[in-house]
Design a protein around this nucleic acid. Structure first.
Length: 933
DNA sequence: GACATCACG
DNA sequence: GACGTACGTGATGTCC
C-alpha cells in the first residue's frame, strides 16, 4: 500500500497507558529470572499486543495502526489548573522501570509507537482521529476511557478490547445521555473525581445530561442559568460558572497537537522476527517466545535465564540455641520487665500451652514470649504439683506461678495494642484460646502462613519442620514430656523444669523464623498473597470456628439406630449369599469370598497383592451376582453411621450444643481450606439417604440457615484463564454449560440434547479441569479408551485454547518450578521434571492447581470482606465448603443477608483481577442444611 | 501406621 | 514406546 491515507483506509489507535495498567493489575508481580527485574506488566502488555495482532486479521483489519503513550506528567492542563490529576496515586514502585520496556515491546512488534512531551495520549489520539476522519477514512480507538468518547462519530468508533465491545454514537449516548458532540459539556458539569476535574458540585452525569438536553449546550445553559426552576441547582450553576468553564477546558481534547509525523507513517507493518524474537528472549518470556515463534514459523531463540549471581540469604545473627536464655516468669515484677521489653521492641513472639489440641475445650496452661533470638520466657499459670510429690496426683498448683487472672490482666493491653505486632506459629489456635479469656489479639503475623505463601507445595509448614529446615535446629520433642497412650498426661502436669525450656523454645523458634521469613516474603513476591489471602483469614476463621453450627443430637441418634437395624439385616443376607459368615467390613475377606470362593471375574491389585473391592469393581460385579450389590448397600450405610451419625454426636460441644470444626489454612497445596475434627466439608449430599444427615444441621430457634454457593466457578475460571470464547459466551448467556459443550462437540442441536450426551460432556468438562487423560475419562465413563481419546481430540479441536493452556502451564511449571493463580498464589511443582509415572501426576496437578487455586483465592477474598459487609445484619458466617458459604441469620433478615453476601461473593475478584466471565452465586435458605443447600 | 474405602468440592 | 493415570481433601475400619 503506498497511496496516501484516505477513503477505504482504517486506522487503529491503541491507548498504551490503558494496556499497561490493565496488564499490571491483571498479573501477579513477575520478575525476570536472571536478575529479578520486575516484568509482569511487560509480559501482560506483550500478551495483549500478540492477542491484538492475532485477532485483527481479515476483512476489517486495520491498514494503519499506532500505540499512543502519555509522556511526562506535566501538560498544558496543569497550566490552566494546578490541581489537575493531583489526587492520582504514585505509580507503583515495580511498574516504573517497566514503562520504557513497553515502548520497546511496541517497537519490537513493529507497531508505530507515538508520544509527545506536554500532551496526553488522549490529545494525540484526538488529533489523529480527526485527521483520519477529514481524509475520509475510518478510525477505531482501542480504549474504554470515557474521556475519548467525545471523538466518536462520523467514522470514528471506540473498542473496549477487554469486553470486546464496540462503542458508537449510541453507546456514548447510553453512557452520557447525550451524543458525542455534547459529551464535553456534560463532563464539564459533572466533573471527574479520577482526574480531579471540579465540575459543578452536586451535579452528576444524569442531571448534567438533563440540563444540556433542555438548553442545547453548555454556553446556552450558563447564559440562561437564571431560568432554572430548582433553586439549589440554579444557584450552583450561577456560583460556579467559572469553574464549569474551566472544567470544560480540562476535558476538551486538543485536536491540533503539533505532531511531527503523518498518518501515512502509521501504515501496518508485518512483524519482523529479527526484531521481535531477541526482545522476547531478552525479557525471558519462555512460553510467549515459543508461541510467537510457532506463529511466525521461525526457530525460537535460546533463552539464558541463569541468575547472574545467586540471591543472597539475609545475614541472620547466629545465636546458638541454649536453654540458658530461657527463664520462668512467676511474679508481677518479672512479667512487667518482659512487658517493658516488648514495648521497647514493638513486636513479640507469643505461644500458648494448653491442656489439649482442641481450642474449644482446652484450658490455657501457660504463655511463652520472645523478643530476641535466644531470649525467651515461659509464664506458667496453672501447672499442678508434680506427681512425684503426690503419688495420686493432686489439684494443688505448683509453686512459683502467677495467678492466671493477674497475668492475663497485665498482658491484655499488650496483646490488644495496635502498635505491638504479635507473632505466632499457627496464630488461629492462640487467638481462639485468648478469645475465650476475653482478649482480642491484634495485629498479628503468622510464620506458618508466611511459609505457606512462600513454599506452598514444597513441604509442610509445622513448626518442627520449619525449625529443622530453616534454622537447622531440632526442637525439644513433646512426646517424652507428655508420654503416649493411656498414661499420657496434659501439659499442666508437666514439671516446670521441663515445661519452661520446651515452651520458651517454641517462642524463640517462632521469632527466629519470623526474622528470616519477613524479608523473604518480598523476594518471593508473595507479600500480597500473604497480606490479602492468608493473614486476614486468621481472625475470620477463628470467629467462624468459635461460633460453630447447631447439630441436633436426637436426629442423629435416631438415624444411627435405624442404620444399625438395616446393617444387621443386610449382613445376614450377605452371609446367606456367601454361604458362610465373614466380616463384611474387611475388603480382604470380601475379596476372598468374591474371587476365590465364588470365582467371579476380577483381578488382583499389584502393589499389596490384595483384591480390589472398590465401589467401581463391585458395581460391575453387581450385574453378575446379588452379593456385591448388597455389600455396596451395607457399605453406604456403614459409612453414614460410623463417620456421620455416630462420630458427629461426639463432636457436639457440651457447653455450646454446637459442633466446632477447625479449618487448616495451610493444609491444602492449592490454597483451599481443609476442615478437621470433624470434617464438615464432606457431609453427604449426593445420595438421598446421605442428604438426610444434613437435616441434623439446624438453625437456632428463631433463625434460618442460608447457603450461598458459586455456580460453576472452576469452569468459569477455566474459560477465563484458557481464554475460550465459546465457553465465555455460554456463561454470558446463562446457558447450560455442559449441554453447550455437548452440542458443540457432538454436533447435536441444543433442542435435541439427551441426558446421556450431556453426561458425557460434563465428564469431559470436569476432566479438563483435572488434566484430562484418555485412560481416566474412559474409566469414568466406562467406555473404551480409544473412544475416550476420540472425545478428547474433538474437544481440543473445538476449544483450542484448552490445549494451549495445558501446554503453557506444563511448560511454565517446568521452567519455574511452580505455577500460580490469577491472584499470584504460587503452588510449587517439585516433581514436574520427574521421569516415569510420577511425571503424569505432577503435570495434571500443575494443570489443576491454577484453576482450583484461583477458585480458592476468590472465596478467601469474599470471606475476608464478609464480616464488614454483614456487620449491621443479625447474621453469622458459619461454614465454608470450597465454593459455598453457610450463614445463620435471624428470621426476617434472610433477604438482606443474601443480597449483601451475594454482592461480596460476586465481586470478590475486584479490583485486582477482572474476569472475562461473571461470577454467579446461587442462594438457598431453610431451617436445616438439607433445605438450605 | 499403612492401606483401602468413601464422603465432599 | 512404556510407564500408570483423572484434581484436591479427611475419617474410619481392618490388619500387621
Amino acid at each position: 500500500m503506498s497511496t496516501a491515507f484516505g477513503k477505504g483506509h482504517h486506522l487503529h489507535l491503541i491507548d498504551g497507558s490503558a494496556f499497561i495498567f490493565r496488564a499490571y493489575h491483571a498479573l501477579p508481580p513477575l520478575t525476570r529470572k536472571s536478575d529479578g527485574l520486575p516484568i509482569g506488566a511487560v509480559s501482560g502488555f506483550c500478551n495483549m499486543l500478540q492477542r491484538y495482532v492475532e485477532t485483527n486479521t481479515g476483512d476489517d483489519a486495520p491498514t494503519h495502526v499506532a500505540v499512543i503513550f502519555d509522556k511526562g506528567s506535566h501538560t498544558f492542563r496543569n497550566e490552566i489548573y494546578d490541581q489537575y490529576k493531583a489526587n492520582r496515586d504514585e505509580m507503583p514502585e515495580d511498574l516504573r522501570p517497566q514503562i520504557p520496556l513497553t515502548r520497546r515491546a511496541t517497537e519490537a512488534f513493529n507497531i508505530a509507537c507515538k508520544e509527545l512531551e506536554g500532551y496526553e495520549a488522549d490529545d494525540i489520539i484526538a488529533t489523529l482521529a480527526v485527521q483520519a476522519r477529514e481524509l475520509g477514512g475510518r478510525c477505531t480507538i482501542i480504549s474504554s476511557d470515557k474521556d475519548l468518547m467525545q471523538l466518536v462519530g462520523d467514522g470514528v468508533e471506540m473498542l473496549d478490547a477487554m469486553k470486546n465491545k464496540r462503542i458508537d454514537r449510541d453507546g456514548v449516548f447510553e453512557k452520557f445521555g447525550v451524543y458525542p458532540d455534547r459529551v464535553v459539556d456534560v463532563q464539564a458539569l459533572a466533573g471527574d473525581s479520577v482526574d480531579n476535574v471540579p465540575g459543578a458540585p452536586g451535579i452528576g452525569i444524569k442531571t448534567a445530561a438533563l440540563l444540556i438536553n433542555e438548553y442545547g449546550d453548555l454556553d446556552a445553559l450558563l447564559e440562561r442559568a437564571e431560568e432554572i426552576k430548582q433553586p439549589k441547582r440554579r444557584q450552583t450553576l450561577i456560583d460556579h460558572a467559572e469553574q464549569i468553564r474551566l472544567s470544560r477546558k480540562l476535558v476538551l481534547l486538543d485536536e491540533n497537537t503539533p505532531l511531527e509525523f503523518t498518518l501515512d507513517d502509521l501504515e501496518v507493518r508485518t512483524p519482523d522476527p529479527d526484531q521481535l524474537m531477541p526482545f522476547l528472549a531478552e525479557m525471558e518470556f519462555r512460553t510467549l517466545t515459543k508461541r510467537i515463534a510457532e506463529k511466525l514459523d521461525v526457530e525460537p531463540p535460546e533463552i539464558d535465564d541463569t541468575p547472574a549471581s545467586a540471591p543472597e540469604a539475609p545475614e541472620i545473627e547466629e545465636v546458638p540455641f541454649d536453654r540458658a536464655g530461657y527463664s520462668k516468669v512467676g511474679t508481677i515484677d518479672e512479667l512487667q520487665a518482659w512487658i517493658d521489653r516488648i514495648y521497647e521492641r514493638g513486636y513479640v513472639a507469643v505461644d500458648t500451652e494448653t491442656t489439649g489440641l482442641n481450642e474449644m475445650t482446652a484450658d490455657l496452661v501457660g504463655i511463652s514470649l520472645s523478643v530476641e533470638p535466644g531470649q525467651a520466657c515461659y509464664i506458667p499459670l496453672i501447672h499442678k504439683k508434680s506427681s512425684s510429690d503426690d503419688l495420686f496426683g493432686s489439684d494443688d498448683l505448683a509453686e512459683g506461678q502467677m495467678p492466671l487472672d493477674e497475668a492475663l490482666e497485665m498482658l491484655k493491653p499488650v496483646l490488644e495494642d495496635p502498635s505491638i505486632l504479635k507473632i505466632g506459629q499457627n496464630m488461629k489456635y492462640d487467638l481462639k484460646i485468648f478469645a475465650r479469656g476475653g482478649i482480642t489479639v491484634s495485629p498479628i503475623d503468622d510464620t506458618m502462613l508466611m511459609s505457606y505463601a512462600m513454599h506452598g507445595g514444597l513441604h509442610g509448614h509445622g513448626m518442627d519442620q520449619l525449625a529443622e529446615r530453616y534454622l537447622g535446629h531440632t526442637p525439644i520433642p513433646i512426646k517424652p514430656l507428655l508420654g503416649s497412650g493411656k498414661s499420657a498426661i496434659t501439659f499442666d502436669k508437666v514439671p516446670l523444669d521441663d515445661a519452661v525450656p520446651y515452651a520458651a523454645e517454641d517462642a524463640d523458634i517462632t521469632l527466629r523464623l519470623w526474622q528470616q521469613f519477613k524479608p523473604s516474603l518480598h523476594r518471593a513476591q508473595v507479600t500480597r498473597v500473604y497480606e490479602t489471602l492468608e493473614r486476614p483469614m486468621v481472625p475470620v476463621l477463628a470467629q467462624m470456628e468459635r461460633t460453630g453450627i447447631k447439630v441436633d443430637r436426637d436426629t442423629l441418634s435416631r438415624m444411627s439406630n435405624a442404620f444399625s437395624q438395616s446393617m444387621a439385616g443386610l449382613e445376614a443376607e450377605i452371609h446367606e449369599l456367601a454361604g458362610r459368615s465373614f466380616n463384611v467390613g474387611s475388603p480382604k475377606q470380601l475379596g476372598e469370598i468374591l474371587f476365590d470362593e465364588m470365582s467371579l471375574p476380577g483381578g488382583k491389585k499389584g502393589k499389596t497383592g490384595a483384591y480390589a473391592t472398590g465401589a467401581d469393581v463391585l458395581e460391575d460385579l453387581a450385574t453378575e451376582h446379588e452379593l456385591p450389590a448388597r455389600v455396596l448397600d451395607w457399605r453406604q450405610i456403614s459409612k453414614l453411621k460410623s463417620t456421620y451419625t455416630d462420630a458427629l454426636q461426639d463432636h457436639i460441644n457440651a457447653e455450646t450444643g454446637r459442633v466446632h470444626t477447625s479449618y487448616s489454612i495451610a493444609g491444602a497445596s492449592t490454597g483451599r481450606l481443609a476442615s478437621t475434627d470433624p470434617n464438615l466439608q464432606n457431609i453427604p449430599v449426593r445420595t438421598e439417604e446421605g442428604r438426610r444427615i444434613r437435616e441434623a444441621f439446624v438453625a437456632e430457634e428463631g433463625k434460618t440457615l442460608v447457603a450461598l454457593d458459586y455456580s460453576q466457578i472452576e469452569l468459569r475460571i477455566l474459560a477465563h484463564i484458557a481464554d475460550i470464547p465459546a465457553l465465555k459466551e455460554a456463561f454470558r448467556r446463562g446457558d447450560d454449560i455442559h449441554a453447550m459443550t455437548a452440542s458443540e462437540m457432538f454436533d447435536v442441536p441444543m433442542e435435541e440434547m439427551t441426558p446421556e450426551i450431556r453426561r458425557r460432556a460434563k465428564a469431559i468438562n470436569f476432566g479438563v479441569i483435572y488434566g484430562i487423560s484418555g485412560f481416566g475419562l474412559a474409566r469414568n465413563l466406562r467406555i473404551p479408551r480409544s473412544e475416550a481419546q476420540g472425545f478428547i481430540d474433538r474437544y481440543f479441536e473445538r476449544f483450542p485454547g484448552i490445549r494451549a493452556y495445558m501446554d503453557d502451564t506444563k511448560a511454565f511449571a517446568k521452567d519455574h518450578g511452580y505455577v500460580q493463580t490469577l491472584f499470584g498464589r504460587r503452588i510449587h511443582t517439585p516433581n514436574i521434571g520427574a521421569k516415569g509415572p510420577h511425571a503424569g501426576f505432577a503435570a495434571r496437578a500443575a494443570i489443576n492447581a491454577p484453576i482450583q487455586g484461583t477458585a480458592a483465592d476468590v472465596i478467601r477474598r469474599a470471606m475476608v470482606r464478609m464480616p464488614a459487609a454483614i456487620e449491621r445484619l443479625p447474621a453469622k458466617m458459619l461454614l465454608q465448603v470450597h465454593d459455598e458459604l453457610l450463614f445463620e441469620v435471624e428470621q426476617g433478615a434472610e433477604d438482606d443477608l443474601i443480597a449483601a453476601a451475594r454482592t461480596v461473593m460476586e465481586a470478590a475478584c475486584d479490583p485486582v483481577v477482572k474476569l472475562d466471565v461473571q461470577l454467579s452465586v446461587d442462594a438457598g435458605q431453610g431451617e436445616n442444611w438439607a433445605v438450605a443447600h
